[in-house]
Computed example of a mutant assay.
Amino acid sequence: MDEGAFGRAAQERAIAEVEAEMARLCELLAEGLAMGVDEGREMVGGAMSEFLVEFFDLARAEGSRPGVKAMITLPLLVHGAETGEPGPAMPVAVLHLLWWASARYLHDLTGVAGAPSPGGAAAGGRVLTALAVGGQLPGRLIAGLPACAAVRAALADELSRSWVDAVDGRLRDLTERAPNATPESVLRGYEGRAGAPYAMAAASAARLAGAVDHRVAGWRAYGRALGVLRRLADDQRDLASGRYEDLAAGTATFLLVHLLAELPPARRREALALHAAARHSASARAEMASWMLDEEVAESYAASLAPLIDRAHGLLDMLGGDPGCVRELHRVVDGTVGHLPGLPLAVA
């Protein structure tokens, strides 16, 4: 496979095919819900329709497109690295996208300002839709794969592992507070919440390709490392865009914890007070963001991220495989870290 065999045009075609397949699956699910009780049909079917509109609008949005592209192309490129053929991993790309669609719905119901009341019909519909999209559709997809029973069981195991690890990461995210957080504890949460689904996608593609166990483990580690980098980039995007969702939620992000560790005691206390006020004050959020986006902070933050970036590239170098796909996977890492402060990378 030469360098251009899965270049940008081929990737865009693959993304369009995956999105079309995902829409088809969700429409089938919505139709299936029509066979249920009238009240459930109205509630869940309405949530499904809302989901279809919201998710695909998000997927096509300019700021989200690189993230969706990475979700889809990761398993294709891993399968290509193992076999020279990315195409057979298309079902895994669909699984990965369904995972994130479901996770987004669940995230909006946990710790997000303006979320529907947990006891309300709207929240109930979203929970049921998330369970169907993230659990039942992937299960049906895996069961229908033209693969042996052992491979299908391994894919189901990867999917289950990703959800357990991600729930652990989200719980850490919800309960860990800035005064007690450490860079290590934050990264552990990121490995679950963001690293787990990328680990699942990479490992599942490797299993579908027939990779031996130690290579599957290597691809799982690469996926997890990439997912952590994507979460770090999302943190940065939240600040740069002015949304400040993490500040409003009181989330102890890696950048915040890094800033706190760099400050002398008196300034640290000031920063913690400002961070606490940011949950309820727009002006406090803007001021806290300016602290976090300071040039000196960005420089030291970039240095702290270098080992994480080196690990992702190092895993790829160790795994090897089809040269064209491996080069593209390196570009996925570079494209992700190009959004991080202090790392103005020019991505090919």
Score class of each variant (00 low, 15 high):
143 A>Y: 02
224 R>Y: 03
170 R>E: 13
124 G>V: 02
105 Y>P: 00
103 A>F: 08
202 A>K: 04
113 A>Q: 15
178 A>L: 14
209 A>G: 09
197 P>I: 03
228 V>Q: 00
150 A>W: 02
102 S>V: 11
210 G>Y: 10
151 V>F: 03
105 Y>H: 14
138 P>G: 01
197 P>A: 05
159 L>K: 08
112 V>K: 12
221 A>F: 05
190 Y>E: 11
133 V>G: 03
211 A>S: 12
98 L>Y: 10
217 A>N: 03
166 A>C: 14
87 G>K: 10
192 G>M: 11
205 A>I: 06
97 L>W: 02
120 G>F: 04
128 L>H: 07
121 A>M: 07
88 P>G: 12
208 L>K: 00
118 P>T: 04
97 L>T: 12
141 L>I: 02
153 A>H: 10
98 L>Q: 10
99 W>Y: 15
152 R>M: 09
110 T>D: 11
155 L>W: 11
173 D>Q: 01
85 E>P: 00
153 A>R: 14
116 P>C: 05
93 A>N: 07
162 S>P: 10
90 M>E: 14
113 A>C: 01
193 R>D: 13
231 R>W: 04
141 L>V: 06
118 P>F: 04
109 L>V: 06
152 R>E: 08
85 E>F: 04
129 T>C: 14
222 Y>C: 02
123 A>R: 08
173 D>C: 01
96 H>C: 08
85 E>L: 13
185 S>E: 09
86 P>Q: 10
113 A>I: 06
161 R>D: 15
213 D>F: 01
85 E>N: 12
86 P>D: 09
163 W>C: 07
91 P>Y: 06
194 A>S: 15
177 R>N: 05
191 E>M: 09
118 P>D: 03
120 G>Q: 02
125 G>I: 11
225 A>V: 00
88 P>N: 08
175 T>L: 14
182 T>K: 07
125 G>K: 09
105 Y>R: 14
153 A>Y: 04
91 P>M: 04
172 R>F: 01
179 P>N: 14
166 A>Q: 15
117 S>N: 05
123 A>D: 00
208 L>A: 06
207 R>E: 11
121 A>S: 12
178 A>Y: 07
212 V>C: 12
169 G>P: 06
128 L>P: 03
162 S>Y: 03
158 E>T: 06
233 A>C: 11
95 L>I: 08
112 V>R: 15
124 G>F: 03
176 E>L: 14
229 L>Y: 02
108 D>Q: 13
233 A>E: 11
98 L>E: 07
129 T>A: 14
171 L>D: 04
159 L>R: 13
158 E>N: 09
204 S>G: 14
127 V>L: 15
231 R>K: 12
174 L>I: 09
151 V>T: 15
127 V>E: 11
148 C>Y: 00
204 S>H: 10
171 L>T: 09
108 D>Y: 05
98 L>M: 14
135 G>C: 07
175 T>Y: 12
129 T>S: 13
166 A>K: 05
132 A>E: 06
129 T>N: 09
131 L>V: 15
179 P>E: 13
131 L>Q: 10
228 V>S: 02
203 A>T: 08
156 A>K: 10
116 P>D: 05
136 Q>M: 13
203 A>C: 07
105 Y>W: 12
130 A>Y: 13
122 A>L: 11
145 L>G: 02
